[in-house]
Each structure stands twice: as C-alpha cells, then as structure tokens.
Amino acid sequence: MWKWLHPYAKGEATYRLLGAWLPWLSALAALFVAVGLGWGLFYAPPDYQQGDSYRIIFIHVPAAMFSMGAYTGMAIAALIALVWQIRTAEWAIAAIAPVGAVLTFVALFTGAVWGKPMWGTWWEWDARLTSELILLFLYIGVLALYYAFNDARTGAKAAAILALVGVVNVPIIHFSVYWWNSLHQGATITKFEKPSMPVEMLTPLLISIAGFLFLTAALVTQRLRNEILKQELHRPWAQQQLGVEAEHGV
C-alpha cells in the first residue's frame, strides 16, 4: 500500500501493470486483426458498385477511427498531466502521439490509394482525406514540440498545452473542412460512407475495428513502458528490468 502511494514507486508499479497487460493486448490485437482482415480480404462478398476495391475499407475505416480516437486519448492524458501533474500522463503523450501519427498516415495512404480507382487520381481534396492530413500535421506538431526542449518536463508540459489547444480545434477544423468540401464540389459524393452495409461486410469490419482498438492499446502500452524506463533509467528497478544486476560487483 505505502509502496503504491510512494511517488518513486509509481513508475515501477505502472510499468509492471502495463507489462501484465501487454501480452494479452498483443495476442488479442493479432487475433482480431488477422481474422478481420483475412475475412474482409477473402470471404466478404464483393461490393456491387466498387467491386473488390472496397476491401480497403477494412483497414481504412479502423485506422481513421483510431487516428482520431488516439488524439482524444492524448488530449485526456494532457489534461491529467496539466491538472494533476502526474508524470505518467506526461509520458503517455509521447507514447500516444507516434501511434496516432502512424494510424493517421495509414488512413491517409489507404484513402489515397482507394481514390485512384474510384476518382481516377491519387489525391482528391475529399473532406475526410483533408481532415486526416491536417490531423497528421497536428500530431507532428505535438511530437516536434515535445522533443524540442532540452528539459523533458518542460517539453511534455508544452506538448500537453498544445494537445489541449488542438483538441478544441479538431472539431472546428473537421466541421470547416467538411463544409468547405461541400461548398467546392457539391456534386462529388463521399464514397467512403456507405448508407447501409450488409451483414457479410459489417461483421469483418467490426472485427477489424476491434482488432485496431487492441492494436492501438498494445502499441501505446509498449511505448509507454519504454518511456517509463527511459525516464527512470537511473533507478535500480529500471536497471533490473533491463537485465542489469544492481548488486553485481559493487
């Protein structure tokens, strides 16, 4: 009990807790992603309009969902870091941002590749693609600010403020981009949104979404563990975790 409350034990306890979760999260992620994508690729029926090209949806939609979900998670971590001054929350910002950035990149890339057969061009100023691009810039901004400072603590706090400023702006940016898109190309229908989906397509999509949820959680857990170790490298418990015997020869 006291050890839990002791501030020096905090990093260690969190590290161990995350360590207990990581194998389960990884296994679930691998299972659900494999089943969802395999089903989507080979067993789901082709779309009557888009043929087999729609199969990109099984990776594009989950990635887009969790690219935004990760930003929300990062903003929550930022709020906790600023209000309660919890250092684990500061490190969580650095753990979530790269994962979110990669998910955003995946959503952007798959969207662009999908656009080639659908719209005949690699890049279309479609509302969802545009707002994903801006989201990528926001992620890069948070990461750049986090690592710009010599003092890690200052960098984390500055990045936390930026993440909160960003999360207020994300809905506004999202709305404005969708509105701008409807203004300039009202005729183009967003082909990502399907009004209704048959069960044979929806089931693998939902499995894939669950898989990406576990995948995001596992990736963040892995990076957060690394971040805790990095910040507490000089503490004996961290050195023990990294395979150094503290008693040896001293």
Binding site: L41, P46, S53, P117
Partner: peptide, 8 residues
C-alpha cells in the same frame, strides 16, 4: 481482385 489487386 477483379483488377483492383494492385490497389488493395
């Protein structure tokens, strides 16, 4: 993939 293999 019905001609879409490259993209998928």
């Amino acid at each position: 993939m019905g001609g879409y293999g490259f993209y998928v």
